[in-house]
Simulated assay, not measured.
Amino acid sequence: MTKPYESQAPHPGPASTTRPGRKLGPITENVGSAHRAWLEPMRDSYLKSGLTMSELSGRVRFAKSKISELLRGAGLYPRWEMLQSVSIELRIPQGPLQRLWRQGAFEGQKSKEWVERSSGKTALTMSPPVPPLDHRAFRELMETQYTLYAQVFLNDDQRDAVVSDVFDILWLRWNEALSSPALRLYAWRVLRTNVMSRTPHIDGRPSFATAAFDTVALQSLAEADHDARAAQIEETLELFKAMSRLPDHQLDVMVLRHLCGMPPEEASDLLGVPVATVRSDERHALHFLESVMCPPPETEGNTL
């Protein structure tokens, strides 16, 4: 029996292969993660729409240069009025788009007054937009596990914000997600990208010891005496440091299995990969961690 969230949506109409005019340039390098969260789905919707820049410009009554800047993340951060006009023509859900736009504005150091002033004159609709039924079913099924994963890396406020953003991004890209070979794998990559974009990094690897101390795996510390607790904390910090050096897929498996307490089958279901892959990743990760945390003793006579 096919589950609601696994139903197949029709592919969007093919983008025009003979679209006249200058090709849309890439996203600029200085675009932040929250800005990119709504910009990439908007670009994809434009490219799949078949509209030319001139046609879109005529419909929304903004200059082609301004629309090009908007779709490349160039220039000043856009006001909501412009996004709303473009989103209506591209049939993008305005509710999640506006929430992500607000996050991007705050990421770009815009004040709350600027955000309210930029969006105060425009209303979404008379009634709040509602996600597709299968999207709502998918969120209900996955939100708790996504939150468990995110809390290993982020504080409570960041955790809740990033999980909310992930489901907004999935809403914007829902047809694409449903049309992907594996919905859960697609969604996991969206989650991981957004969690890691907010996680502090040292030498390119995630630093998550502070947030991870609140996970279920460390609750046993509360029952230890002072000396044992201090020793356990030091050992745990070293473990987290070693875990940060794991390949991404092995780190995710170790977090889900040993910090979130999930059995292999549940981790497999969440990641969208076979159980055998989860077990293999865990086995290789444990071997690496043992070699780092408990290196073999030096052979006698092996002196420098």
Rank of each mutant, 00 (worst) to 15 (best):
C260N: 03
L170S: 01
R283G: 01
G204Y: 07
L289V: 06
P274T: 10
V216Y: 03
G75W: 05
R72E: 11
P263L: 14
L51Q: 07
Q151F: 09
P96V: 08
K23Y: 04
L221T: 01
M262D: 05
R257M: 14
V195H: 04
H135L: 13
L286A: 13
S16M: 03
S180H: 02
R59V: 07
R205I: 07
A177H: 04
P93N: 02
N194P: 10
P4R: 10
P14C: 04
L90F: 08
L251K: 06
K64L: 01
R102M: 14
L178I: 05
A150T: 02
T236G: 08
P132K: 08
S65K: 15
S16Q: 09
M126I: 14
D203F: 03
Q145M: 10
R139T: 05
V273M: 10
G32C: 03
T303Q: 13
V115K: 12
T147M: 09
P41L: 08
T18S: 05
H201M: 15
D227L: 15
P129V: 02
S45G: 08
H249F: 00
G120H: 13
E55R: 11
T199M: 05
S65G: 13
F138H: 11
I67A: 05
D160N: 12
K110W: 14
A267Y: 00
I27Y: 11
Y77F: 13
K64M: 15
V31D: 04
S268G: 12
K121T: 10
T193P: 00
D269W: 13
R61L: 12
L170W: 03
S207D: 11
S54L: 14
G58Q: 13
L76I: 08
R91F: 07
I67S: 02
E176P: 01
L100T: 09
Y146P: 01
A137S: 13
V255T: 07
C294D: 01
N155A: 13
A211R: 00
G13H: 05
N30Q: 07
D157F: 06
S49W: 04
S33R: 05
R59P: 04
M42I: 01
A212L: 04
L39I: 05
H201P: 00
P96L: 10
T52E: 02
W38I: 07
R72T: 12
Q94I: 05
Q94K: 15
N175Q: 11
M196I: 08
K66V: 14
A177P: 00
V216P: 00
K121A: 15
